[in-house]
Amino acid sequence: MLEIRDFVTSLKHVPTPWGKALASGLNRDTDTPTGTHVQEALLTALELIRFEVLTNREFSKTYSRPLGDETQKKHIILLSRAFSLLPMQLKSQPWSGALNRDLLAFNSFVKALARSYRNLCEMLTLSFFLNGLVMKDRKDYFQISESLPFMSDHNVALGLVCKYYLEQFVEGKSLSEALKATENAFPTCQNVKDDLKQGFKFWQLLIKAVNILVIEESIDIAIGDMFKNADKWLEQNSINKL
C-alpha cells in the first residue's frame, strides 16, 4: 500500500521523502501518542498536505470564521483541521455542542480518503488470496477484515473542541479559563483535557514530518512556514501546555 502511494520506492523499497516524513513522525518518544489511530491520522495528514487540503485556507467565504485577528484565524483553522483527524472519547448520548461548516467540509475530504484507503487495503488483501499467496482454508476471515486499517470513519469532534478552546484564548481568557469554558460547552465529551493533550502531541508528530518534507524539498516552503508559524504561536503563548 505504501509503495502504491509513493511512500516507498517500487524497486528497492526504500522510503521516499514522503516515507521519511511518515517514519519520522512515527518514530515515537515515550511521551508521544501511540496506536493505530495515530498512524492512520498521520498518514491521512500527509496525504491531505500533498493534496493541499490540510491548509489554513478557508473553503468558502460564506462559512463562519474563527475568532481572533487574521493571523490567529489562520492558525486556528489549520490546528482544528489537524486535530479533527484524531478520534475523541464521547459519552453515549447525542452530540451537544457547536458545529462548524468549514470543519465538516474538511471532514468530507478525510472520509473520502479514508474510504479509498480502506478499499485499497481490502483489494490488496483479496489479491493475496486470488494469487495463492496465503492459505485460503482458514477460520479468521473476520479477524483479518477487522485488523485492516481505516476500519471506521472519524468525526470532527476534537477539531471542534480545539477550535473553541483556541478561540477562548484569543478572546482573552487564561488557559485554565479557556479549558473550563470548553468543558462546559461540550458536555458530550468524556475528557476534554486529555483529548486536547493527545491532539497537541499528535501536532508535534506532524510538525516533525513536515520538517522532513521541507528539508527534502517535497513541499513548498510556504506550506512549511504555515505549519511552523502555527507551531511557533502555540509555543510562544504556551497554549499547548495543559
Score class of each variant (00 low, 15 high):
73 K>F: 02
131 N>K: 14
104 L>D: 06
142 F>P: 00
109 F>V: 02
175 L>N: 11
101 R>V: 10
110 V>C: 07
150 F>H: 04
132 G>K: 08
134 V>E: 08
172 G>H: 08
126 L>N: 09
74 K>Y: 04
76 I>V: 10
127 S>C: 03
170 V>H: 03
98 A>R: 10
172 G>N: 05
76 I>Y: 03
129 F>S: 06
148 L>E: 07
128 F>Q: 15
82 A>R: 02
121 C>D: 12
136 K>Y: 01
151 M>C: 00
120 L>T: 08
112 A>W: 04
127 S>A: 12
112 A>M: 11
139 K>D: 15
169 F>Q: 04
131 N>E: 15
141 Y>T: 00
108 S>N: 12
113 L>M: 14
117 Y>G: 01
120 L>M: 12
162 C>G: 06
73 K>D: 03
118 R>V: 01
73 K>W: 02
141 Y>R: 00
87 P>L: 09
165 Y>T: 05
125 T>M: 14
148 L>G: 02
146 E>Y: 09
167 E>D: 09
154 H>Y: 10
165 Y>G: 12
171 E>W: 00
158 L>G: 03
147 S>R: 13
168 Q>K: 14
157 A>W: 04
106 F>P: 00
173 K>G: 05
137 D>C: 02
156 V>A: 05
116 S>L: 04
104 L>N: 06
81 R>Y: 06
91 K>C: 10
127 S>Y: 04
92 S>L: 13
127 S>E: 13
165 Y>R: 10
121 C>R: 01
164 Y>Q: 04
170 V>D: 09
86 L>S: 06
90 L>T: 13
172 G>C: 06
127 S>I: 01
92 S>N: 15
98 A>G: 03
100 N>G: 04
102 D>K: 01
89 Q>I: 05
146 E>N: 13
138 R>Y: 06
93 Q>M: 14
100 N>M: 02
98 A>I: 10
158 L>H: 02
129 F>I: 12
175 L>Q: 13
78 L>R: 00
132 G>E: 05
82 A>F: 05
70 E>F: 09
112 A>N: 13
77 I>Q: 05
151 M>R: 12
132 G>C: 08
78 L>I: 02
103 L>I: 03
149 P>H: 07
129 F>R: 08
100 N>F: 00
156 V>K: 00
105 A>N: 09
84 S>I: 00
112 A>T: 13
135 M>N: 08
128 F>G: 07
151 M>K: 11
160 L>G: 05
92 S>I: 09
139 K>S: 15
66 P>H: 03
173 K>R: 14
67 L>I: 03
102 D>P: 03
80 S>M: 08
103 L>K: 01
69 D>A: 08
132 G>D: 07
93 Q>V: 10
151 M>Q: 14
173 K>S: 11
155 N>D: 15
64 S>A: 14
86 L>R: 03
97 G>I: 11
92 S>Y: 11
126 L>F: 10
145 S>M: 11
99 L>M: 12
146 E>A: 14
119 N>W: 00
68 G>M: 04
173 K>H: 10
98 A>Y: 07
70 E>I: 04
124 L>Y: 03
118 R>K: 13
88 M>Y: 01
121 C>A: 12
163 K>L: 11
172 G>P: 08
112 A>D: 14
134 V>F: 08
94 P>A: 11
101 R>H: 13
